[in-house]
Design a protein around this nucleic acid. Sequence first.
DNA 1: CTCTGTGAACCACTTCACAGCA
DNA 2: TGCTGTGAAGTGGTTCACAGAG
Lengths: 226, 226
Amino acid sequence: MSDEPQLSRAAAVPRRVPNPTVGRLSVYARVLASLQGDEGATTSSGVLGERTGFSAAQIRRDLALFGQFGTRGRGYDISSLRARLDEILGVHVARRVALVGSGNLGTALLGYTGFREHNFEIVAAFDVAPSRVGSKAPGGVPIHHLDDLPHVASAENVEIAILAVPVDAAQATLNAIARAGIHAVLNFAPTRLEAPEGVRLRNVDLSVELEALSFYLANSPDAEDR
Amino acid sequence: MSDEPQLSRAAAVPRRVPNPTVGRLSVYARVLASLQGDEGATTSSGVLGERTGFSAAQIRRDLALFGQFGTRGRGYDISSLRARLDEILGVHVARRVALVGSGNLGTALLGYTGFREHNFEIVAAFDVAPSRVGSKAPGGVPIHHLDDLPHVASAENVEIAILAVPVDAAQATLNAIARAGIHAVLNFAPTRLEAPEGVRLRNVDLSVELEALSFYLANSPDAEDR
DNA sequence: CTCTGTGAACCACTTCACAGCA
DNA sequence: TGCTGTGAAGTGGTTCACAGAG
């Protein structure tokens, strides 16, 4: 069972995929979407390289991880590669997302149209502030009390949580999310969280990003010329 | 001049710093801030490791890049290490930031209190929508027309731009930012941008983050057990 | 005995370079 | 001929493990 004879192409997702590859797959999918043209149109690792800023070799290597979709001499079929990438990324089905924390940032995220385009659907929001609970966020998403998370999450089949609560509440809220059976969390709270068993956690940390920029300003490798 | 005899500690910022290290330094600084206690209190790479989730060896390696601030057997002096990190990160002086694009996400960022805490100050916002230009964003930050960027940026000594415009406008706006003499940009537009000469660009891409989470949901390494 | 600073080993990811198929 | 897929080499970052300072 370790070596089922591949019917030439296709191929399942391999045991281990390098972390950086996952992010790039998402970029490839986006570029392919913008390239999508006539039936049967193809592209190449070279073109994708120009459009994505990654090297052609890198792209071939990434794609080859999942099987061989290319045709030597011709390149990759745009629409079938795109379909396969969506499938690999699991975005061929709509993903149901909960927004936990409906403050400033949280509600701004609700207004971000990119989610829908990428097949992510925010189906519920949560908060603890009495002023917000019970109302609807912009876009008509109902705001529930955090205590209702387990119930609502399972009723709504939530798969991903966006965590946008204050730092002090972040770890406890993350734990509650985990207990509610949600296994993927995108955290915006600027603090290092301990991921509960079985939970995939990714962090978007504005402070870290800004401080990194500040670092480069302060230590510009070629600051002398301006 | 390549080898001035270090007066034991201190040490300038080295030629090359690994990219991941920069982000970690920011995390160390944050944890040190939360640890700050009595005069002369110390901590160790072990403790910092617990608090940050990075390995103790990793932390020692990162810090040693910038000189030797530790004392064998005792650890690191909390407040002096913190001060030195702030200096290395360039956040011992306030950094002046412009917000370019004052839509949903942009204004939400204005409400993010973390900036001030970390010594980043949003001094101006920009937009092209007549309905927004001329008004003040929440927090009292004036919204200028994008055309005034060069003028305002230099008058206000803006060093960092936060780019929060729609995808179609992103590259052109980035170019305008570069022409205005700003050399560090944090981009929220979900698209791969070409950084103009001399511009440090960092990306925060929600779609990529969510698709990465989706990937792990779809290909959970241990999906069988739940 | 503790905890740093650091060579050396290790590992993960990337790039090179080319054989081979269309 | 053009472009993929992939061994092999290379690069960069991390971990090990320990000498040595306090």
